[in-house]
């Protein structure tokens, strides 16, 4: 038994594509905090078969990883997570435990706190002070007021931080770190809630910043192309966005504008159709993961930002793309391997 609580813990969150951004944000924030407080930055990695996340976590500064793998942890079940995390806390007694203020983090944090009578602060903006005098700042009262909270004496302190508020630091190379693998037996009877299914959001209505795939259009696409681009978007499960020119011309609404005077987006894929690539636009999308551009002008600036550059008339190309996607989908439904029609 140690004398005082030690370590800054971060609860990892992941989905099918691996560790979520919120965890990386927490690691970025946690690194600064750990350095300042002279503590070790640890990650609690809970799930089933999540060992693959370890390299990423070390890249972003994790110094120790508590790994618990269990079938019941495959989905973010509150009861299972609370139980396992409780066991870890009892055993290792951390100083601060940080989670993302995500749907699951937001209910897990107070749950643990209540279980062990710990101070809990949700949606924290930052943590200042040290030792016994930690001070946490959070936004309240309709964002008009910030409040500073003293978490009094008990530790660990449990904190959740809202996603998207912190810049993610540049990753280092993956390192070897201490991985403490724990086997925790989860009693089956503690599971009181059960996930039935996930209902996908409608890309047509979700916020552009949240969109995974964006089909964007510019003045060059023209009003008449909107229906086919919408069709493409629907086929891909993408949202529609556009440049200032498209908004000026009334093709799309302002809340769908990408760029300096619109939204800054970071989708996994952005398909730019009929967009010349003025700075106004590119400044709002340059951090997109992949960019495909279709433009009739060989010299369009957008091609500087694109991974795939296609010179041609989108009115001719896009309908064919839609057809091919439909064919591919049908094939897959029939159980065929997805191949490609390369004949022209």
């Amino acid at each position: 038994m140690r004398l005082k609580p030690e370590g800054i813990w971060i609860l990892e969150e992941h989905d099918d594509e691996g560790t979520k951004n919120i965890t990386l944000e927490l690691l970025s924030e946690g690194q600064k905090l750990a350095r300042r407080l002279n503590e070790q930055l640890c990650v609690c990695l809970l799930g089933s078969q999540v060992g693959g996340c370890i390299p990423t976590l070390t890249q972003y500064g994790a110094e120790k990883i508590y790994l618990v793998e269990h079938e019941l942890l495959s989905e973010c079940s509150l009861d299972a997570y609370a139980f396992v995390l409780g066991e870890l806390i009892k055993e290792y007694d951390p100083y601060i435990l940080m989670m993302g203020a995500t749907p699951s983090g937001s209910e897990l944090a107070p749950r643990i706190a209540a279980r062990f009578k710990l101070p809990c602060i949700t949606e924290a903006k930052n943590i200042t002070g040290q030792e016994e005098n930690l001070q946490i700042t959070k936004s309240a009262y309709n964002d008009q007021v910030y409040i500073t909270i003293d978490p009094l004496a008990r530790r660990p302190l449990i904190v959740t931080m809202p996603p998207g508020e912190t810049d993610i630091i540049e990753p280092n190379k993956p390192r070897e770190v201490e991985v403490i693998k724990k086997n925790v037996e989860i009693p089956a009877d503690i599971m009181r809630t059960k996930r039935k299914r996930i209902i996908k959001g409608d890309p047509r209505t979700i916020r552009l910043e949240e969109a995974d795939i964006i089909v964007s259009l510019g003045r060059g696409a023209g009003n008449e192309s909107l229906p086919i681009l919408q069709e493409l978007a629907d086929a891909l499960g993408a949202s529609i966005g556009g440049s200032r020119g498209a908004v000026d011309d009334g093709i799309i609404k302002f809340e769908r504008q990408i760029g300096i005077s619109g939204k800054t987006v970071t989708p996994r894929l952005l398909i730019a159709c009929g967009i010349s690539g003025a700075r106004e636009f590119t400044a709002g999308m340059e951090n997109s993961n992949l960019v495909a551009a279709v433009n009739i002008d060989q010299k369009a600036r957008i091609f500087d930002y694109a991974n795939l550059c296609i010179k041609g008339d989108l009115r001719m190309i896009i309908p064919q793309v839609i057809d091919k996607i439909q064919i591919a989908k049908q094939k897959r439904e029939k159980g065929q391997v997805l191949g490609l029609d390369t004949k022209s």
């Binding site: 495909a292 279709v294 008339d313 064919q320």
Partner: peptide, 23 residues
């Protein structure tokens, strides 16, 4: 800016280009 380097601009018939995009 994160200018992407090295990608060439593809030309061709609409069908070919559509194939490229789908690929």
């Amino acid at each position: 800016s994160s200018k992407k380097e090295g990608s060439t601009v593809l030309e061709g018939s609409a069908n070919q280009l559509a194939d490229h995009l789908v690929k």
